[in-house]
Design a binder for these strands. Structure first.
Lengths: 376, 376
DNA sequence: AATCGATGTGAGTCCGGTCTCAATCGTAGG
DNA sequence: CCTACGATTGAGACCGGACTCACATCGATT
């Protein structure tokens, strides 16, 4: 019932103590629910706190407990639904354990990531979840780890450092989906990714991103197993804004030996690729087959619905958060580390090689062959 | 070059001071770049700081400056691309001014929102951006405002409190788009929203959300201007998960006097509605017309591409952030408050009333009539 | 009745910075 | 040569809680 309008200074334990006629120490004990406090004192303090609308200053509390109950999350771009969903998994899990989340975007820029990590460390977050822009430039992550601050990686790994990482086995799913395309008769398969890199892609290039490396390796292995030549010339990295993706799409589809199938590395790219294909007047899957990573709801609404690699993104975010919290609370990591598997969701955007009937697919009918392909 | 591996306690100014052989005060001055410090001392301190890898504790700093350089963002659901995009606008703007963002989801639950606000206040954020779940239950927001803490609302307003709010004029755009549907001959227009409410919708009901209220009011006005009866029976609130949205869609499309057009209140709903329509074997726009709020890239990929109400979501997020930062820094709000307008993007999902040719559209051809409809 | 352990309680320190204040140093003006 | 004013510098208070420690208090034990 105390209505004193706008007040400037916050109410502190000292104020409450004075109002309750007890020492600051006793008030703190009653409010913080620790130590020994008589019922009488507790009641008076609580009443005074209520009356004054006392609220503890978490900053001060953090100062001498050393715990901020805050975790830092560093992702490429929260606007990307992939990260939106992962973040949701993280925040939901964090909230359950009483943690808050500070979010920073890096736009997949390592410098921004280094900065983000430093800022979060300065703010004394209890731990970090990072989707590293690079799997190679990881000194800043190593430093975090060595300083003993809990850290969990998401989506991509970092070479060498023994960091807990939550990611799917990209090489395997990439192998499987490439195999699927191969079975449909495709040999000229393009791969388009936003990964920024200076080097031109070719066999053996160690790419900056474990995720993309693994995918390419999976593709390569599938081609090799099928005794086909891997079309390295159709790998397009450094895809940027919508316009550049359109151009890349045109390139791979209009060249001398054009792609008959296109794989989009994420949902954002997929959007522009499909649009470009439609603009070119090509039909999916009759003229060109299409496959993308991440299964968003809208992929079921296109005509035809799109064939995708579905990743348990929300669950991975949630798992990253609980792993981090385990670290923070000093508990050992989950006994058998949870594994996450991507699955190929076959819908309508992948068809048989246009122009000719499936060439030498006599050896095996399409989907059974795929279904039984056990990969180690 | 100091490589002492894992260290426990952080390096403090005191440590740096000792290493540089100066007083704590001088070290602090040199590091904090304030007060008078001789070149000699500054150099020694900076060198020592470098050597020891000193990093200031922002918590401690915040404690006595009273500024945490952190803002709290409270949204319904970061997984919803609408908020993803708005959040991106917020974080980008915040970063430019040196602010970080703590993100909390409420799932449009007021209790969770009250809690979120309290937590953020306890953490002493410098200001808050809230997309309020309810425009009616706003005591917690009033309290924040009265306590003098900067606060900006996003998307929805709060009755009565004179809070700075960044939102589009929903009534107007709703009027316009309803007019568009009416011009196409539709009279039975369904509206589906996730808004949770206990009351059954009917004329005059004051809904919990200003946003939805305004949209319905715009629709109502358009119907009234067109001398048609507003189909209140086709307003469906409380849409929840995908399943329930499917059911609601079926209801309005299968009743005795079914809807000929459906308006989806946001992108998530739209997904399920379109899916339900496809499942029912109905074609858009031949059998049923469709219009949705928010213009996501995927809406161009469906067949036909979807007609949408586009909102400048990113810009609104950015504007909310700069408005908040102005408040925090004690600067006056932008002279003419920036206004944001939604626009109707006519693509292919709205067609003429099925079965009959446009009935009495003789009065005006479709789009000119719409284009010139100036609404106050 | 003297002693012991389990509470209760208040004074005061600490966390890691910022900032005030008084003391010191240097030297330019008189 | 002496004084005064600005530049430097160090000691210590302070932000708002958490927590240590010494000092009661009090019923229970022997």
């Amino acid at each position: 019932m105390s209505s004193d309008g706008a007040r400037r200074r916050d109410v502190t334990v000292a104020d409450v103590a004075k109002a309750a006629q007890v020492s600051k120490a006793q008030a703190a004990r009653a409010l913080g629910n620790y130590g020994a406090v008589s019922d009488d004192v507790r009641e008076r303090v609580l009443a005074a706190a209520e009356e004054l609308e006392y609220r503890p200053n978490e900053l001060a509390r953090s100062m001498n407990t050393g715990k901020s109950h805050t975790i830092g999350v560093v992702v490429g771009d929260i606007e990307n639904p992939h990260f939106g969903l992962a973040t949701r998994g993280i925040t939901d899990t964090a909230k359950k354990s009483g943690f808050n989340v500070i979010l920073i975007n890096t736009d997949e820029n390592t410098a921004a990531e280094v900065d983000a990590v430093r800022v979060l460390l300065d703010k004394r977050v209890d731990g970090l979840i990072v989707a590293p822009a690079s799997s190679v430039e990881t000194q800043h992550l190593r430093r975090v780890h060595e300083s003993g601050r809990p850290l969990v990686l998401l989506d991509r790994s970092a070479d060498g450092l023994g960091l807990e990482t939550v990611a799917v086995d990209m090489a395997t799913i990439s192998y499987e989906s490439t195999r699927y395309l191969l079975d449909a008769g495709h040999r000229r398969i393009a791969f388009i990714s936003t990964l920024r890199t200076d080097v031109e892609y070719s066999e053996g290039t160690r790419l900056d991103s474990s995720q993309i490396s693994d995918r390419l390796e999976g593709m390569r292995r599938a081609f090799s197993d099928a005794r086909c030549e891997f079309p390295g010339d159709l790998v397009r990295l450094n895809a940027g804004d919508a316009g550049s993706i359109r151009n890349l799409t045109r390139e791979v589809l209009l060249g001398a030996d054009p792609a008959t199938a296109v794989v989009a590395s994420d949902g954002l790219i997929a959007l522009s690729v499909v649009e470009a294909i439609q603009e070119m007047g090509l039909r999916i899957p009759d003229d060109v087959s299409f496959l993308m990573y991440d299964d968003f709801a809208w992929t079921r609404l296109t005509t035809p619905p799109l064939t995708v690699v579905a990743q348990p993104v929300y669950d991975m975010g949630a798992a990253a958060a609980s792993a981090l919290i385990r670290q923070i609370e000093g508990r050992p990591p989950l006994a058998p580390a949870p594994e996450f598997h991507a699955t190929l969701v076959r819908r309508g955007s992948v068809g048989a090689l246009p122009g000719s009937e499936p060439p030498h697919s006599a050896s095996s009918s399409l989907s059974p062959s795929f279904r039984t392909s056990a990969v180690p």
